[in-house]
Amino acid sequence: MRIVFAGTPEFSVPCLEACRASGAQVVAVYTQPDRPAGRGRKLAPSAVKQAALAAGLPVEQPESLKSAQAQATLAAYAPDLMVVVAYGLILPRKVLAIPRLGCWNVHASLLPRWRGAAPIQRAILAGDSESGVDLMRMEAGLDTGPVLLERRTPIGPDETGGTLHDRLSALGAEVLAEGLRRALDGETLMAMPQPDEGVTYAHKLDKTEAKLDFARRALELERTVRAFDPWPVAEGAIAGESVRIWGARAVDRAHDATPGEVLAASRDGIELACGEGALRVTALQRPGGKRITAADYLNARPELRGVLK
Score class of each variant (00 low, 15 high):
133 V>M: 07
302 P>M: 04
234 A>L: 06
249 R>C: 02
57 L>D: 13
188 T>Y: 01
195 P>S: 07
107 H>Y: 07
42 K>P: 05
3 I>P: 12
201 Y>N: 07
108 A>I: 02
47 A>C: 03
178 E>H: 07
159 E>D: 14
4 V>H: 07
31 T>G: 09
96 L>Y: 11
137 R>G: 03
86 A>R: 05
298 L>S: 01
183 A>C: 13
210 A>Q: 08
66 K>V: 08
21 A>D: 15
112 P>C: 05
187 E>Y: 03
191 A>E: 14
6 A>F: 05
103 C>P: 11
169 S>Y: 05
187 E>R: 12
168 L>T: 11
260 G>T: 08
289 G>M: 08
181 R>F: 02
132 G>E: 08
131 S>Y: 03
180 L>E: 12
110 L>S: 02
264 A>P: 00
62 P>L: 01
11 F>S: 12
187 E>K: 14
159 E>H: 06
126 A>M: 09
195 P>T: 05
23 G>S: 08
197 E>G: 10
190 M>F: 10
309 K>A: 13
142 L>W: 10
243 V>I: 10
22 S>E: 13
64 S>N: 07
190 M>G: 10
109 S>Y: 06
292 I>D: 00
176 L>S: 06
291 R>T: 10
296 D>Q: 15
264 A>F: 02
254 A>H: 14
11 F>P: 10
151 R>A: 15
186 G>Y: 03
35 R>N: 10
226 R>Q: 15
239 A>F: 02
241 E>K: 14
16 L>A: 01
56 G>C: 07
300 A>P: 01
253 R>V: 04
233 V>Q: 12
66 K>P: 03
201 Y>H: 14
105 N>T: 08
34 D>K: 15
218 A>H: 04
83 V>Q: 10
220 E>Y: 09
15 C>I: 02
117 A>L: 13
164 L>K: 07
128 D>M: 02
59 V>Y: 09
236 G>N: 08
182 R>S: 03
140 A>W: 03
150 E>P: 06
250 A>E: 11
246 W>G: 01
281 V>C: 00
90 I>C: 02
97 A>K: 12
162 G>N: 06
42 K>W: 10
94 K>E: 15
146 P>V: 04
69 Q>M: 06
